[in-house]
Amino acid sequence: MSPTTPTSPILRVEQLGCERDERILFRDLAFQACAGEIWQVAGANGTGKTTLLRILAGLHGFHDGRVRWQVPGARHASAHDQILFLGHLAGLREELTAQENLRWLCALHDQPAAMIPAALSAVGLAGYDDAPVATMSAGQKRRVALARLWLPGKAVWILDEPFTAIDATGVEMIEQRLRKQAAAGTLVIYTSHHRLATDTRQIHLGGQGA
């Protein structure tokens, strides 16, 4: 893999197109994203925001065009080991505790399990380590999932509706985290109807294209 300077793009999207259920979601989508940038994928409901994120994360393969990752330090061209993907589902089993859920996810994604308690207290869930997820509110469940933002080791964050069910102080806290991490060189791509206060690049889906 060629050496990448801080300004050269680590994500190149070329002529990306996808259709679903007989309907074209987007076509000829092209953009380049560099480390340290924050991208918001915007658009009305049903314009393919989630599908775009799933394509970027390598979950959805039925599309035209190309997605190329050049993440420094990635072991494979797919850059799977450098991507943190949080879908609109939290990915937590109700029968397990917050700690147990996160430990499995950490083992799966090569992240340090020792930092889970610190991450949980960072999202305001100190002391909830051993609480079964079934006993938590929707906002708390989302916070458990988002606690992974406080674990190190990923150069790209792909977040699908991270602010859903989160209260105002929580939104503020996550915004700060995203800004801080972007300043440290993480590429953040997220979908939301809520736009971050800082200079956020936008991809508009539906109608006018990118």
Binding site: L59, H80, F85, L89, L108, D110
Partner: peptide, 8 residues
């Protein structure tokens, strides 16, 4: 989904 995006 989390299993499928895992590296390795």
């Amino acid at each position: 989904e989390q299993l499928l995006v895992a590296p390795g």
